[in-house]
Design a protein around this nucleic acid. Structure first.
Length: 290
DNA sequence: ATCCAGGTTGTCC
DNA sequence: GGACAACATGGA
């Protein structure tokens, strides 16, 4: 990596328990890349950003807006990384069950990011019957083909996540370069229902989870899992419990009665601890580890 | 080559 | 209501 440009820096004091590696590489987002120098770089909020842990602090800067006011960037990142939520309290709740306790100790640096609702919905439509590595590639090609270029101080080309309005008028053939297969028609249906106003993602903030799920599931290709991921990662509805193959196995073998009652309001966080934990320790699921 | 991946749909009972 | 193959793509 050529790293000749000096990086304007801001410091967010007290990153608390936040781990960038756990948070940015746990399958909730797909646009952050770990650089050779230990910095994470990614696109969020139409900005090209870098972040890095340094002891108790978080260092960060913007490559697309080198002159951004530090306080403005700090404010954006505090929101994006969800620094106001009391994750220690959530880990305390996880102490009531031995496996959750272990998972929260292992993955307790995870925060649920506050990503943009449309990006979250769209990327989790792409996630279905797919693996994280390939999802990352699909998102990258979607942005390269249909996002807006964002000028960056490092000389590289970055792209915003394409707006629903940009995708809505396209044809399935036009999406071919993304190579998302049968998911193309799902993306288009989602983009059209958002663009037409039939579904208002921002309005879902005021709608209870169950009802919001039913609304999102009117989109072709959106079932309960994708809907819950979109609501958890895009609208920060912490009671969502998206059930993928990993979480399904974990719930079946470790929580036949379901999560403890007191966890349910923050099931999404516990689920994310568990997701990271069992992917790194498949043996806890017993048998062949599958 | 066959199986699988942060699932959903359509079909058949 | 539940079971089950099909769906595009690419890595293991």
């Amino acid at each position: 990596m050529l790293q000749t440009v000096s990086k304007p820096t801001i410091i967010i004091l007290d990153r608390q328990e936040l781990s960038l590696a756990q948070t940015l590489d746990c399958g909730q987002c797909f646009r952050w890349v770990l650089q050779n120098d230990g910095t994470w770089q990614g696109v969020a909020g139409n900005k090209v950003l870098w972040v890095k842990e340094e002891g108790e602090n978080l260092l960060a800067g913007s490559l697309s807006e080198p002159d951004i006011e530090p306080e403005k960037l700090a404010s954006f990142l505090r929101e994006y990384f969800d620094m106001e939520t009391d994750y220690h309290a959530i880990q305390g709740l996880c102490g009531s069950h031995p496996t959750l306790k272990e998972a929260s100790a292992f993955a307790g640096g995870i925060h649920i990011l506050r990503q943009e609702p449309w990006e979250s919905l769209c990327t989790f439509i792409l996630s279905q019957n797919n693996n994280i590595k390939r999802i990352t590639g699909l998102v990258e090609r979607l942005c390269e083909n249909f996002g807006q270029p964002i000028p960056s101080a490092d000389g590289n080309q970055y792209f915003s996540f394409p707006a629903a309005e940009v995708l809505a008028p396209l044809s399935e053939e036009r999406l071919a370069p993304v190579r998302c297969g049968f998911r193309a028609k799902y993306i288009l249906d989602a983009a059209r229902k958002i663009t037409s106003g039939e579904i208002d993602l921002e309005a879902l903030r005021q709608v209870p989870t169950q009802q919001a799920m039913e609304i999102l599931m009117k989109i072709k290709g959106v079932g309960p899992k994708v809907a819950q991921c979109a609501l958890l990662f895009g609208l920060h509805k912490m009671d969502c419990l998206p059930r993928d193959v990993w979480i399904g196995r974990a719930l079946d073998t470790l929580f036949p009665e379901g999560f403890p009652q007191e966890i349910l309001p923050v099931a999404g966080v516990a689920q994310q601890y568990l997701f990271h934990y069992v992917r790194c320790h498949p043996e806890v699921l017993g048998g062949s580890g599958k």
